[in-house]
Design a protein around this nucleic acid. Structure first.
Lengths: 183, 183
DNA sequence: CGCAATCGTTAAGCATGCTTAACAAAGGGA
DNA sequence: TCCCTTTGTTAAGCATGCTTAACGATTGCG
């Protein structure tokens, strides 16, 4: 268990992720601005993300070099097909994760949105697609959905014993008493 | 939707997260080494994480300043109570996420472990606890577990129409045809 | 004891990504 | 036209976190 979690073959994949958190938000900002106003300039992106124009300018230059951002004939910012793909991937991940956390796990909105926003650019397409499937299963039947919620809300304490818990079999309890109240 | 995803009040929380990915792995490495060998030195941590001794030294100095790491009477590395709490939080998140991705969502192992490792330090205690509850629900009944798997494996194509899909109601389909094959 | 290997720290360099500040280029009103 | 504002770029500084290299301080063997 502890042997593999620190295996360098994948723990450092974090810093080599396809897209950084920051880059994802620059792309999504362009998408959102074009949708809302029909165009996006460096200053608009900077305002939306509340970063300086300098930061936006430098980041967008990198995104242009990477082939995700272009300028249209009027020198307005534009996503390339690949850029739009990345933006949509991250945005869809955010939507799925925040919906999953809020509607299925019943995590308080603020926490759910915070977690989803941090994780949105890190979940692979494969995982996102399958998570969508799980949610179609749960949300597709009201009785089932209600039962999930009932069970989750009753699960405020640690499992009684490793024997009867399908998760803790053999090992230690994943959520012992000291972890059942919030941080 | 696009309005809130770029709201600076939380998109920049990513860089202010309680613990960085790197810091989490330093803490978990100390934990793992002490468990396996009874002690942990800077060099051992560096070897386990496959970083230079210089990097390990500097990072561990920061973790000492932060109160998560100490030295024992023999000058070996030791986690403080708070440090152990953080390490266990992240490790438990990794276990829950990788189990969820592999055993519930049936994501291929390599992808599941990669995703879990990237997200492990970003999921809040609250969300992790509730995810554990969901998994107790699903894995606690074989019929239910089988049904979830059947449904997820059949969900390889986009939903037929927004009308009948509990997720896409109103808006666009989250997983239209062009996204249903892997990247 | 002494030499050599190991251990831990520190410095310099690089990359990311933010800040503020300076500046050139373009735009708009009197 | 002139001036002032807005826009976008660039430079310098800071923080994180990695690299390699140099450096003392141990440690251990013959």
């Amino acid at each position: 268990m502890s042997k593999s979690i620190n295996d360098s073959s994948y723990w450092r994949e974090f810093e080599r992720n396809d897209i950084t958190h920051s880059a994802a938000h620059y792309l999504m900002a362009i998408d959102a601005l074009r949708e809302e106003f029909g165009y996006a300039r460096v200053t608009d992106v900077a305002d939306m993300l509340e970063v300086s124009r300098g930061a936006a300018s430098m980041s967008l230059t990198q995104l242009k070099k990477r082939g995700w951002v272009e300028e249209d004939p009027h020198r307005f910012l534009l996503l390339t097909d690949e850029g739009r793909f990345m933006a949509q991937l991250v945005e869809r991940n955010f939507q799925i994760l925040s919906k999953f956390f809020q509607d299925v796990l019943k995590v308080p909105k603020e926490v759910a949105l915070g977690d989803a926003c941090k994780m949105e650019h890190l979940m692979s397409l494969e995982t996102g697609r399958r998570l969508t499937g799980l949610m179609r299963f749960i949300c597709g039947d009201e009785t089932r959905e209600a039962k999930v919620h009932e069970l989750i809300s009753s699960m405020q304490t640690a499992c009684k014993s490793s024997e009867e818990c399908p998760l803790c079999e053999g090992g230690e309890c994943l959520y012992p008493a000291e972890f059942t109240s919030d941080t």
